[in-house]
């Protein structure tokens, strides 16, 4: 193993952290990610069905129910698995070849659903381990980079603590720090806010928003709140297909005129629940004279999924 070269082809100078590199950002006018016709089948189950997607700088949310194919799509984009069909370009490189895949991995940060911490490692040691996996062999420069990313996620003070002694929120921040090593141009985050309490989730949102200021972030989540607060764009995936691709406001708009209030349960509603005021909030085609409500992102998301034919219907 040799000292990790910078993207410009020169060896990283000792004692300096990896700087933001122009080649880690997409060329002007080209998307960070361009995927076309991605398909993948596991044991006769279609995980991805002709998924085409373009991602540009900023935070894009990926919403979908369990089994929709979100994690599979993220793994394909993170080069963990190869699709059966389709073309993919990430930051101008094609991960289909060995050389292209390595080039993509050098410009990619990935936070998997289960980051898998090595027991007994401290926060510093874990991020250091990931930096080594990213071909950082020069000790001083690597440690400087580790300190930089741990400071970026606010964990400088606990860097010497064993990971098993950290809270869930801190562990997720350690994983995010590992994903930020080398200042990647494309950040893939798979449900990073799961299991976090509201305070930790807000702190994590701040970090994601910060990370998305100058790079492309794809955020898979079950939380429509995360999307509403962070994302300039949202993609809804169901049964391995993209069912919606637009802004959060446009997703909410999908439910315009299809959310209404009632004093009793509405059997005809696609979904309905009693709210804190005692009224029912209903989604679907409202009856005549119904009192319409302002749609939310969650309403739009639920109606996008509710409008899908089920497997039995198909």
């Amino acid at each position: 193993m040799t000292t990790r070269p910078s993207s410009s082809g020169t060896a990283a100078s000792p004692g300096t952290a990896a700087p933001a590199d122009a080649t880690r950002r997409p060329a002007a006018g080209t998307p960070t990610v361009a995927a076309s016709g991605l398909s993948l089948t596991y044991h006769r189950t279609v995980a991805l069905d002709e998924v085409s997607l373009r991602l540009d700088p900023g935070v894009t949310g990926l919403l979908g129910p369990n089994g929709a194919g979100k994690t599979t799509l993220l793994r394909v984009l993170a080069t963990a698995i190869r699709p059966d069909q389709g073309t993919l370009t990430v930051l101008d490189d094609d991960p289909g070849s060995v050389r292209g895949r390595t080039a993509v991995r050098r410009k990619l940060g990935y936070l998997p659903q289960s980051p898998g911490f090595h027991p007994g490692f401290t926060a510093f040691e874990f991020v250091d381990y990931v930096a080594i996996l990213r071909e950082h062999t020069h000790r001083a420069a690597r440690h400087q980079e580790v300190r930089r990313v741990l400071a970026a996620v606010g964990l400088s003070d606990v860097r010497g603590k064993r990971i098993r002694a950290l809270s869930g929120g801190m562990r997720q921040r350690v994983a995010l720090a590992a994903a930020l090593v080398d200042d990647p141009g494309f950040l893939v985050l798979d449900e990073p806010t799961v299991g976090l309490d509201p305070e930790q989730r807000i702190r994590f949102r701040e970090l994601i928003a910060e990370a998305g200021e100058d790079r492309t972030v794809l955020l898979s989540t079950h939380q429509t709140e995360d999307v509403a607060m962070l994302c300039r764009r949202v993609v809804v995936l169901a049964h391995g297909r993209i069912e919606f691709d637009g802004t959060p406001a446009e997703l909410a708009e999908q439910a315009a005129g299809r959310v209404w209030a009632s004093t009793a349960r509405e059997p005809a509603a696609l979904a309905g629940w009693r709210t804190g005021t005692g009224e029912f909030r209903n989604l679907g085609d409202p009856p005549d004279g119904a009192r319409l409500l302002e749609p939310t992102l969650e309403d739009g998301y639920l109606l996008t999924l509710g409008g899908l034919p089920t497997k039995e219907d198909a």
Binding site: M1, T79, A80, P115, G116, L133, E135
Partner: peptide, 18 residues
């Protein structure tokens, strides 16, 4: 078996080398 396997396989360091 390797807890950080997914991070390992998506890292630039070739997995075969590891």
């Amino acid at each position: 078996l390797d807890p950080a396997y997914e991070l390992t396989v998506t890292a630039p360091l070739h997995t075969f080398r590891l």
